[in-house]
Design a protein around this nucleic acid. Structure first.
Lengths: 248, 248
DNA sequence: GACACGGTTTGATCTGAATCAAGGCTTAAC
DNA sequence: GTTAAGCCTTGATTCAGATCAAACCGTGTC
């Protein structure tokens, strides 16, 4: 993420409650003004569908608060999650008029939308927006490819550990660590949603979560509150390279 | 693909044997000249590794002829293909200095490379290059997400049928159809490579190919030459929506 | 308090694909 | 012509995860 010094998220986007990593970095005053004109907010309750695959989609958007998912469904009902949208993530494709996936709010959700036509025009005239979007898309592609390794080759236990590590890592970057170095967070997904993420059934998810708890890798308070006493121990269970990833 | 009228592949890139969809569309004469200066060709034999994950990578490239694969490998040797590069496909990430995946030539391969530093500079000064790259990356992301559905939720038989359909469709767009409406092509992948693509073992691939042959969905001449007498029949086996996909 | 409901756990059983193992078919080498 | 190496097929067996089934838990409602 450090490979472009665009001072990303370095200022607020007008009155947006969060800083729009996607579209506002390096915006000039007049560009901001233009963005102001074409933006609007939409709120959704947990469980609500934002848009169905195939529906007309005349906006692009970024998540302000909450979590949304992208899923694909086969005729017989088999579902696979293909994207997880966290605050500041971008959704929508310039140049396409219909949604390619179901977008669903998993938690209460606020999105900051931009009407597509003017957004595309803005993109034409402000090259750094296209470049920033390219960067984000490449990041997403990398994430998708890691996800493919998970889906194709990892065991159920490794899949669960990987998902917990992904969420734990994200949360750790937002919150300070606990005194003893443990990481604590609430699962934003139901067992079924986890299963759709991982290409498993909800029963298998439940069993493997129980197994990780039994083996002391995680602790549970209720169904959703997770304590990871030792992050490295969790990482060992993911099957991933231990070296913490390549440098940029 | 029709959503941007960039007259892509509308002219040759200097003496390149193919038209570089990636970087040459709408190039001005002076931009072409600049590209000429930073480009060079590299050839690889079938089976050769272009670059290993983690290696320094100071170029970006597009495939001229042949096929290359991107794969990820776990420490214990489990492998998952995460990308399949066909002629005119682009590889390499502006802003990153090391390769994130193993890149391997599956067939004899010629790539047209551009040194990264000057390519990035060119990107800064020519907005349409970044935009074209964004478009291509979004296409790749869509493909990755379809692939995720395949990996997470499809049966072995559906996976094989899907892969054959993908290759058949691509070939059909390059070659004229056979008199009787059938599609004929040569598999560019070994059974093991197919397995790595699909998240299966090579034995399962072999069995399912035999099963599709037994059921008359495909015909085989030798190990690699495939005849699809009825493409719709093959599509039925993929588990995908029959409606041929959404309009753009 | 009784009830229903969504999310979850756990148990018993089944099954699709992995694994283990043996050959077969081509092509190239000597 | 024999041998070896790659690639592919097929069979027997095993096993991880799916499926089927039952019950549990917390919350909100009447």
């Amino acid at each position: 993420m450090a490979h472009h010094d665009l001072h990303i998220t370095s200022h607020d986007c007008g009155d947006c409650p969060i800083r729009h990593r996607a579209v506002c970095s390096r915006c000039e005053a007049d560009e901001l003004a233009k963005l102001e004109q074409i933006k609007y907010y939409r709120s959704f309750q947990a469980g609500q569908t934002v848009i169905w695959s195939g529906d007309r989609m005349d906006f692009v958007a970024s998540v302000v608060t909450g979590i949304a998912t992208l899923t694909q469904t086969m005729e017989d009902g088999r579902r696979q999650m293909v994207g997880l949208l966290l605050p500041s993530d971008f959704v929508g494709r310039p140049g396409r008029s219909t949604a390619a996936y179901d977008v669903t709010a998993t938690t209460d959700l606020v999105m900051c939308c931009f009407r597509k036509k003017p957004f595309e025009e803005l993109m034409q005239s402000t090259p750094h927006v296209a470049q920033r979007l390219l960067e984000m898309t490449l990041d997403e592609l990398d994430a998708a490819r890691e996800w493919m390794l998970l889906l194709g080759r990892k065991t159920a236990r490794e899949k669960i550990a990987s998902l917990l590590a992904i969420i734990a890592r994200r949360d750790a970057s937002l919150k300070p660590k606990t005194p003893k170095g443990g990481i604590v967070f609430d699962l934003p997904l139901t067992r079924e949603e986890m299963a759709d993420y991982l290409g498993l059934t909800l029963e298998t998810v439940s069993r493997q979560v129980s197994a990780l708890k039994r083996d002391g890798v995680i602790e549970l308070e209720g169904k959703r509150h997770i304590i990871v006493p030792d992050f490295d121990r969790l990482m060992e269970e993911t099957g991933d390279d231990s070296d913490g990833g390549y440098l940029n």
